[in-house]
């Protein structure tokens, strides 16, 4: 049986991989942002998995605190990104950076 920590770690890694792919592959910024959130979640999952020490000690509390802080930070980042994206879409009727669509910047 795979220990749950390892499972969480592997799942996190998978999420990182999927998120990274999406982050790189999509030109549409909203998709890209969503991918980034997947990526971030993967990182947090891995972080959480790293908190597991041993059955006797249980989980380390520090990563949990850090993950919560991280989620707040990511939330703020995403909010700012969405705000900017909305503004871009209003101004240019596009939701992608020009160079990613092959337009001149």
């Amino acid at each position: 049986m795979i220990p749950s920590a390892t499972l969480f770690g592997l799942a996190g890694a998978a999420l990182v991989g999927i998120g990274l792919y999406g982050f790189l592959a999509h030109a549409h910024l909203l998709r890209r942002l969503l991918s980034f959130n997947v990526l971030g979640s993967g990182v947090f999952l891995m972080f959480g998995a790293a908190a597991w020490r041993s059955p006797w000690i249980g989980a380390d509390a520090v990563p949990h605190a850090l993950i919560i802080t991280g989620i707040v930070v990511k939330l703020a980042g995403s909010a700012l990104a969405i705000a900017l994206l909305v503004q871009l879409a209003r101004a240019t009727r596009r939701a992608a950076l020009p160079e990613d669509e092959g337009r001149p910047p």
């Binding site: 982050f23 001149p104 910047p105």
Partner: peptide
């Protein structure tokens, strides 16, 4: 410079 601008290239390079 224009070739370095698109995100995909930068990201892949970083990886």
């Amino acid at each position: 410079e224009a070739a370095l601008l698109p995100w995909r290239r930068g990201g892949l390079l970083a990886a």
